[in-house]
Design a protein around this nucleic acid. Structure first.
Lengths: 199, 199
DNA sequence: GTCTATAAACAGATAGAC
DNA sequence: GTCTATCTGTTTATAGAC
């Protein structure tokens, strides 16, 4: 265990600040969070934020660019490794876990989306970050749905439904029972398959 | 055209402030909007807000309680009046219109949801407001889906998917073509119907 | 590289005038 | 009922110490 170089120390501080920022922004929002609060949550003081980032908003944008989709991408990878026949079930369990266990995920995603909507200059960047996991999912869907365009449509639907149900479950768990997402996927793919035969 | 009574004048001011607040909160967020900004947008000054509402946060909560779902309820009514065979198409057009024409709707809904998530004491109120349109939709779905539990599940799915696709289209229109929502509904109901026969 | 102290701006809320 | 003036607390951002 060797000593950290100056650059490594700075990089470590940077990562810790980003971790803390993710938590605080999720809990208080971009406008509601103060720089002081984020620094304190990371174990530093205000100065560290300004020496590593331009300010609060730049810190938020960095967070969006670097981490907006890594959890989602990881999820897609998990699904990719699941047995094809079990993919619906795996996605269903993932939704329950994200909605019930990861309290910060959905609010932070909402903050990112709001920022993109309110700051057109960042919208394309945000959209591209979100396309990444969608491409992963499309490849996955393509295994069982040969038509490429239809696979793309299905993956948009699956992601939108996932996000919608996660948010719904957060505020009204009874309306989104554990098995609902998996069931919806089964119906969706069954219906899409039936459509294939008579377009 | 008779003169307004004192109570009527106050009620009018109140409504104007709520209208302005809806716009400003949608565009800047709860924390990002200032009371002064809202008052000005309504054509009044700060004092009017404090004489009609307890303050910024109370104004926001009133807005949530009184108007969080009226647009959604109206949408459900429109669908209820459509021909059953055309319901999917009507919903599809509604999504396009909401996503493309009403710039404030989705951001304001996101703000409401974030507030509910961050303020547990209001979460049940918010959830109840959201259950209202869902009940309307469930009655509608029940016309073609006899099983009551399944109709309830389908209406949760339809609403979550609607919200998810609206948000997705706002930031990446190409990933949510005009006909996507209608198509998803057709697949969904076809699949659910097929499920009916072999549970 | 990070911290402490401070400057400068701003926003929420109130009191009293009209 | 609403407006103007003001008080108070908080926040961002910076400058200089270590």
């Amino acid at each position: 265990m060797t000593r950290l170089t100056r650059a490594e120390a700075k990089a470590r501080t940077r990562e810790r600040l980003l971790d803390a920022a993710a938590r605080v922004f999720a809990q208080k929002g971009l406008a509601g969070a103060s720089v002081d609060e984020i620094a304190e949550a990371a174990g530093y003081s205000i100065g560290a934020v300004y020496s590593n980032f331009g300010g609060k908003e730049q810190l938020f944008v960095e967070l969006l660019q670097e981490r907006a989709n890594d959890r989602v991408n990881r999820a897609a990878e998990i699904i990719a490794e699941a047995e094809p026949a079990e993919a619906n079930g795996a996605l269903g369990r993932l939704l329950v876990e994200v909605a019930d266990k990861d309290a910060d995920f959905a609010p932070l995603q909402a903050e990112f989306w709001l920022y993109a909507v309110r700051n057109p200059e960042l919208m394309e960047t945000y959209a591209e970050r979100m396309r990444e996991p969608r491409r992963l999912l499309t490849d996955l869907v393509a295994r069982s749905v040969p038509d490429a365009e239809r696979a793309g449509e299905l993956s948009s639907i699956v992601i939108a439904l996932f996000q919608g149900l996660v948010r719904m479950r957060r505020v009204d768990p009874d309306s989104v029972p554990d098995e609902l997402f998996g069931r919806a996927l089964r119906w969706l793919f069954t219906g899409a398959e039936a459509d294939e035969e008579q377009p």
